[in-house]
């Protein structure tokens, strides 16, 4: 869920920035300056999202746990110690590792999809092209993350 939410937000930013560079000829300017736009624009974004989304997933895990603790202890009257004991019983290190791994895969997927849509925008599409690229990046990233999550969960958790 964290990957889908963050992915959509990050993907929109990536796609919009690249599409804007395309329609304003900034990408062509790079090519004329003998600079590879893939290396300068796409590769760092790909690495950044792939490496940072797992950290965001870890952060979301911590926030989720804290929120659950608050809800359980303050609203449902569960003893704090009992809650933590239950958490230790149910949540294993492998679950956290799986979450981080999935975050990495989703980060890579979101970056690839968003950079693809942003990079494909054409000058003639104008400002509308930026909107279309951003929209496609959000929708495709979210759908692909959800579908991929089904398969990955099946592989990781079904024994």
């Amino acid at each position: 869920m964290a990957a889908v939410i963050c992915g959509a937000r990050i993907g929109a930013t990536l796609a919009a920035s690249l599409a804007n560079m395309q329609i304003s000829e900034q990408v062509e300017a790079l090519e004329v300056m003998a600079v590879d736009p893939m290396r300068l624009l796409v590769a760092p974004r790909l690495w950044a999202v792939t490496l940072m989304l797992p950290l965001l997933c870890g952060y979301a895990d911590v926030v989720g746990l804290a929120a659950s603790y608050y809800a359980a202890t303050e609203q449902m009257g569960v003893n704090g110690g009992t809650f933590m004991e239950q958490v230790r019983d149910i949540v294993h290190l492998g679950d956290l590792a799986a979450g981080v791994f999935k975050g990495m895969v989703f980060g890579w997927l979101v970056a690839i999809v968003s950079c693809y849509h942003g990079y494909r925008a054409l000058k003639r599409d104008g400002a509308e092209g930026v909107g279309v690229a951003t929209n496609r990046a959000i929708v495709h990233s979210a759908v692909l993350c959800i579908v991929l999550n089904m398969f990955m969960s099946a592989l990781l958790y079904v024994r």
Binding site: Q26, V32, A34
Partner: peptide
Amino acid sequence: REQLFALRRKFGMLFQDGALFD
């Protein structure tokens, strides 16, 4: 691609709207 980039280094280009990096 290497040759093309080497050739492009002979060029400077002024785009119609400038194409400055925002």
